[in-house]
């Protein structure tokens, strides 16, 4: 089984096609959409996790590319620089999924990456620029 995070860019003409449906039906992949910004007639972007067999994963990615999507397999990652962080907690105010929280006792910052949906709100909010999106 493979579990990978993909960063997909949809060309404008593909935004209306049920791409994810085909990933499920034709390739038996389980998608977990973390973030999507799709507008008709505009370029779209989607970050998703897919789980499935290695063969199906490879075939699924080939399908996506054949549809004209740009597939970034080494998908972007949110990284917290603990040296720069001053534990002000401001990022926790914009983190809707609750990936960034303050320890109730110490009030120091905790980052639970499993809850992160890569919305990047914290990247913009952090006054220390301690949270970055890496590729």
């Amino acid at each position: 089984m493979a579990r990978k995070r993909l960063d997909l860019t949809f060309p404008p003409r593909q935004s209306l096609k049920p791409i994810i449906y085909h990933l499920v039906r034709d390739y038996d992949l389980v998608p977990n959409i973390l973030r999507a910004q799709i507008h008709p007639a505009q370029e779209g972007r989607m970050v998703l996790e897919v789980t499935g067999s290695k063969e199906n994963y490879a075939a699924g990615v080939a399908f996506l590319e054949a549809q004209g999507l740009t597939v970034n397999e080494a998908a972007s990652d949110i990284v917290l620089d603990e040296e720069r962080c001053v534990d002000c907690g401001l990022c926790t105010a914009v983190c809707k999924p609750g990936a960034l929280t303050l320890d109730p006792e110490t009030q120091t910052l905790r980052f639970d990456k499993d809850k992160c949906v890569y919305c990047e709100a914290c990247v913009i909010a952090c006054p220390r620029r301690a949270i970055t999106l890496t590729f």
């Binding site: 001053v86 907690g89 926790t92």
Partner: peptide
Amino acid sequence: LRSGSIEVEGKKVPTGPISSLPR
């Protein structure tokens, strides 16, 4: 405020500090 949420106009609102308590 430190509890993580307050009530404003009947709505539960999540809070976040700016001043670092650990520092």
